[in-house]
Amino acid sequence: MIFVTAFDSFGSAPVNGSREAALCWAALDPEIVVTILPVVRGLAWRVAQTALAALPEPPTLWLMLGEAGREPQTVRLEKVAINWDDFRLPDNLGAKPRDAAIVAGGPDAYFASLNVAKIVQVLEKKTPLPVTVSLSAGSFLCNHLAYHALHAQLPFPSAFVHVPAWRPEDGGEALGKLVATLRAVKEAALL
């Protein structure tokens, strides 16, 4: 079983590409269990914890999906999560922390518990969308969730994956390419 989380829409966006990709992926792959998280500081992590606790057994892997910008059309595997919230826009309940620790007294940063560089190497030029290593999950909810997950020292590997901001006008083919790339990431992560 692979646990996949994605985020609901936020700001003025009508959809969240991570949510759409996760739901489409789950419809194609019976190993995938999806939980959609609210774009709310603190609550996203609590909802993820509750969903994990409700699983019949620990997952083999947790892939946390979040939406990056529209360009470039790249899937980014995040190597680092930092202990820092610095929201440039408010979450869906209006919180906009600036220069705030995620976990008071926690380490400054954690590395992903998956070997993201190896995954990228295995997938080089083999996926519909390029897959790259990123050294910054930002300072919004994506990084917030990744930091909490790594701080919890869960007994299974996890990594945060930023996906391009898919929109309905991009069409099904673009969504299919994203899902095919995520499926390849999963397979490479399990090697």
Rank of each mutant, 00 (worst) to 15 (best):
V4A: 11
T5L: 08
T5K: 12
A6W: 01
A6L: 10
A6I: 08
A6M: 09
D8I: 07
G11L: 06
S12T: 15
A13C: 06
A13W: 09
P14Y: 08
V15D: 00
V15E: 03
N16V: 11
N16T: 11
G17A: 13
G17N: 10
S18R: 12
E20G: 06
A21N: 11
A22E: 06
A22I: 04
L23K: 08
W25E: 14
A27C: 05
P30S: 15
E31G: 08
V33K: 15
V34H: 04
L37R: 01
L37E: 02
P38A: 12
V40Y: 02
A48C: 13
A48W: 03
Q49H: 01
T50W: 01
A51N: 11
A51C: 08
L52M: 13
A53F: 08
A53I: 02
A54D: 14
P59L: 03
P59N: 07
T60Y: 03
L61D: 08
L63C: 10
M64Q: 13
Q73I: 05
R76G: 00
R76F: 02
R76Q: 08
L77N: 04
L77V: 08
E78F: 00
K79H: 09
K79I: 00
N83Y: 05
W84R: 15
D85Y: 06
R88P: 15
L89V: 14
L89M: 11
N92M: 08
N92R: 14
G94P: 07
G94E: 06
K96E: 14
P97D: 07
R98Y: 05
D99V: 05
A100G: 03
A101M: 01
V103S: 01
V103D: 00
A104H: 11
G105H: 05
G105E: 05
G106H: 02
G106V: 14
D108S: 11
Y110A: 06
F111M: 10
A112V: 03
S113V: 06
L114Y: 06
N115L: 02
V116P: 01
V116N: 03
K118W: 03
K118H: 10
I119E: 08
V120C: 15
V120W: 03
V120F: 04
E124A: 15
T127M: 09
T127S: 11
L129N: 12
L129E: 02
V131Y: 13
T132R: 15
V133M: 04
L135K: 00
A137D: 05
A137Q: 02
A137W: 01
S139H: 08
S139Q: 12
F140V: 10
L141C: 06
C142R: 07
N143A: 12
N143R: 05
L145I: 12
L145F: 02
A146R: 00
A146Q: 10
A149K: 02
L150T: 01
H151F: 12
H151Y: 13
H151R: 05
Q153V: 05
L154I: 05
L154C: 08
P157L: 10
F160H: 03
P164L: 09
W166F: 03
P168Q: 07
P168T: 07
G171F: 09
G171L: 13
A174D: 12
L175N: 03
G176N: 12
K177V: 01
V179T: 11
A180H: 06
A180F: 02
A180M: 05
T181R: 07
L182Y: 04
K186W: 00
K186C: 14
K186Y: 00
K186D: 02
E187M: 13
A188L: 04
A189M: 07
L190P: 03
L191M: 11
L191R: 07
